[in-house]
């Protein structure tokens, strides 16, 4: 029903576009190839500061790929090639002079499956801080602060220095991963389907947390779950077959989609 050729004809439909001043991240004409296969087609979009932007779309549409190109995690995939620019605070992170390792210290990431290190809760959160050379009492303070901000402190305060992160429940593990990501105070937090492996109650806790985090961080979240996108995000991007079809404020995209594919996806006719 939807072919790539038809999609490529269309310009991205934009409602209430984000101005350059509002944007923390400005993606300009980003195309990406895995070997010979093209995964992203000429994507341009801006992610506004202190807001939650959701990326939705059917499986294989390139939403995770787009997310991973925002902190150069795709560089780790053999045979990847990128064209275009991703401006972070006005600096192109794909500039050859930019060190991808340094980029990732500015941008936190939370993965689909909780992946705590097989270390204590404390060491999990301290990992990024130690990489930055934080030591002693400051390290401890910032670990506790991150655990509090990730709404995990109350549950682990009596055992966080002894117990392994792997002993926590799935939802707690995911909040631990969030604490680990925000401990280094990254202005931008990327979340790749953070609740897809969790039960509804744990999902609720994470979603509440995302609302809290919005006040300090800019959040980009990839989700499979359209209700979740509607609940947590301020803006939504709809992608299909590697093309950014439509973007706009969440309530507009979900109630009055302008592109026929967006409407078809949202009303559950494909995907």
């Amino acid at each position: 029903m939807v072919s790539l050729e038809m999609l490529k004809e269309h310009e991205t439909v934009r409602t209430a576009p984000v101005s350059e001043a509002e944007a923390l991240v400005d993606v300009r004409g980003l195309s990406l190839w895995y070997g010979k296969k093209q995964a992203l087609y000429d994507i341009s979009v801006r992610f506004p500061r202190n807001q939650v932007t959701a990326i939705i779309g059917p499986s294989g549409c390139g939403k995770s790929t787009l997310l991973r190109s925002l902190n150069r995690m795709n560089d780790l995939v053999p045979g990847v090639r990128v064209e275009g620019e991703v401006l972070y605070e006005g600096v192109n992170i794909y500039d050859p002079r930019v060190d991808p390792v340094a980029v990732r210290r500015h941008i936190g990431m939370v993965f689909q499956k909780p992946n705590p290190f097989p270390k204590t809760i404390f060491e999990n959160v301290a990992f990024g801080l130690r990489l930055m050379g934080v030591k002693g009492s400051e390290l401890e303070d910032r670990v506790v602060e991150a655990l509090k901000r990730a709404a995990l402190w109350n549950e682990v305060q009596d055992r966080f220095k002894k117990e392994s992160g792997l002993r926590l429940s799935g939802g707690q593990q995911q909040r631990l991963c969030i604490a680990r990501a925000i401990a280094v105070e990254p202005p931008l937090l990327l979340m790749d389907e953070p609740t897809s492996a969790l039960d509804p109650i744990a999902t609720q806790a994470i979603e509440d947390l995302i609302q809290e985090l919005k006040t300090r961080y800019t959040v980009v979240i990839v989700t499979h779950n359209m209700q979740q996108a509607a609940r947590v995000s301020d803006r939504t991007l709809f992608m299909h077959l590697g093309v950014l079809v439509e973007e706009g404020p969440t309530e507009v995209l979900f109630t009055k989609p302008k592109h026929p594919y967006t409407e078809a996806y949202i009303s559950g006719r494909f995907g």
Binding site: A102, R104, F111, N115, G128
Partner: peptide, 8 residues
């Protein structure tokens, strides 16, 4: 992946 994402 987790360690790389933290800038290791």
């Amino acid at each position: 992946q987790a360690a790389f994402a933290l800038g290791a």
